[in-house]
Design a protein around this nucleic acid. Structure first.
Lengths: 250, 250
DNA sequence: CCTATGATTTCGGTATGCCTAAATATTTGA
DNA sequence: TCAAATATTTAGGCATACCGAAATCATAGG
């Protein structure tokens, strides 16, 4: 397993490929990858060839792109970096939820393995970031309570919020004002007879304890873990050894 | 004052040019710059032309290189970043003196202005780093007690160590074992009749309190501030406003 | 079945920042 | 003073990573 040098571009490509399949399993296509990275399609074509040469992805021309075991390992290393950084920025430097993403995006390519492990240590080796996204351990293993998107649950389900999509900072602020955060206990009441949205009962609310209606977009951004299940489920493992260090051009 | 985009290479060039004149005043030459940056002379020639085009240096062909006011401003911003980062890594993440340099070298190009100011805030806005090197404030102003290199002082001088050159990590460890650190009180006794070295009396020593002999290299790595003088002297100022942000390619 | 449409790749080109080798300028000392 | 040694710059190239335009592939609809 020769660890070829990985540039920060390569790290970004691999990370985006991984991210696309984290919460659903269709593999990513060239054009989606281009959009997510903000580069031209032609740039992706070239880079994917390079990633393939380096053994980070499997790819047949005109087909979707899959990570190899080695690519997955690198992606998980980057995800670990990103989420530990976000957690650290919030807990140690007082960043707000919506400030951290861009900062972490830059830092993840610049910090050393030493830095990462010292951070993890200082934080007490957290297994999830401030949004509830799981943080892979140094071996690339991911642990997370089995969860479902709120908008896919039938009425009656009770559980605690285990993940909040961090795509829209505005939405994060909206949820805060509703008293909904990580680990908030919630019961799904159902969809109102007419009109949109999902009615839920927020348990711990410091606000009014009554039922609240969440917009469709909001409900699709929340994951619920059954309140009974304390099972932490090992979602991801890498056969063989420790996470590859991204080995940036230091 | 248009702030042209500065790459991390440009930041390095400007920082090294500045560093060369920080503790003596001969301007840096092309080949010294090349050595310090670890690049070929020809690369320096090209980059210096570019720095000149961007208004960061003054330079006539075949002559030494000077920073312009704008270049100085950028250099001070980078020095501020570097030294704050070193201080932070030592104080908050338990790095040792000799581990911090390379890490800070990478991070200084990646962190945002926001990150820097949050760090400075958390550290209580320190004015010097763990080696005693002054940290410019956000306006580029440097404050430091007037000091002299130990090997340039006449016998009888008493003062406290105000700076320790961080070039040789081994030397740092050696000093530690001698009980000499930042703010250690010291009296210069003189040079022994024959042979090399400088005899000093270490005041606060937790070790034996007798006179110790420092090698020439050691003595040249220590700066002493007179113990009476509590004057903090403003060494550097930038006419006009705040430090330019390096504005990395974020 | 076969074409039109959209997705993907290939083909020249650009910018950065580095290199070696060759040319040119400066300095030094015989 | 002037040639040899040294310092610096120019010239020609390379790698990375991007672009737009043109060519090629895949597939859905008629």
């Amino acid at each position: 397993m020769k660890t070829t040098a990985t540039s920060s571009s390569i790290e970004d490509y691999v990370k985006v490929i991984y991210a696309y399949t984290e919460w659903q399993d269709k593999p990513i296509t060239s054009s989606v990858l281009a959009t997510r990275l903000g580069v031209a399609n032609s740039s992706v074509s070239e880079m994917v060839r390079k990633l393939k040469d380096q053994g980070l992805v499997d790819h047949q021309p005109y087909s979707p792109i899959h990570l190899t075991a080695e690519g997955l390992s690198l992606a998980l290393a980057m995800v670990r970096r990103h989420r530990l950084l976000e957690t650290y920025l919030v807990q140690e430097l007082g960043y707000t939820w919506d400030e951290v993403h861009d900062e972490a995006e830059q830092l993840e390519h610049a910090v050393s393995e030493n830095f990462i492990e010292r951070m993890s240590n200082k934080l007490g080796h957290p297994v999830r970031d401030p949004h509830g996204d799981p943080i892979p351990d140094a071996q690339g293993r991911i642990t997370m309570a089995p969860s479902h998107r709120l908008d896919e649950l039938d009425p009656g389900h009770t559980g605690r919020i285990s993940r909040i999509s961090d795509h829209d900072p505005e939405l994060l602020r909206h949820l805060e004002s509703l008293g909904i955060g990580l680990d908030t206990e919630l019961t799904v009441l159902g969809r109102p007879r007419f009109g949109a949205g999902l009615q839920v009962h927020v348990e711990n609310s410091t606000h009014d304890a009554g039922p609240q209606t969440l917009g469709d977009e909001v409900a699709a951004s929340l994951w619920l873990a059954s309140v009974g299940s304390h099972a932490e489920c090992l979602v991801q493992d890498l056969t063989g050894g420790s996470l590859m260090s991204p080995h940036t051009t230091h």
